[in-house]
Amino acid sequence: MFAKKRSQHGGVVSSMPSSNAKKLLRLPHVFAKILELPFPSDDDVLVEETPQFFRFVASCNAGGVRALAIEILPGITKIVIKRMDGGDVAVAGRHQQVPSGFGLWRFRLPPGTQPEMVTAVSIGGKLVVTVPKIKSRAN
């Protein structure tokens, strides 16, 4: 007689290489304070620095926008620009929004800035983003 040897089933379904590729992405660097604008990384953005703030100005037809300071962890803050309804601003030349942010215009904000106080306004075809600096005692 030959006993049945039915093998054990179960276990986690494995990932195929094709699904692996979706999980291993090229991602941009992490910094303590970073500003990300909805433009390709090569776009012309005017960067103005004064003792009180950094200001960024670029051509943009996004309509109403707002700036969000996302706290990734305590001590790590990323500023992103969203539409008033919370949706993503379309990036020129980019067919599909890549959640990783790779290839977007980014600016590493110096330690003396206050990203949580960021403001953004879209006016006259221009996006204007202002990030205040921490007021020094000397002022």
């Binding site: 990932s15 692996n20 999980k23 291993l24 996302i70 990734i72 962890l73 990323k78």
Partner: peptide
């Protein structure tokens, strides 16, 4: 083939 610490967004990866 996949990272040991993975999530849908940056905050999730950091956590």
């Amino acid at each position: 083939g996949v990272p040991p610490f993975w999530a849908e967004d940056e905050r999730g990866v950091a956590l």
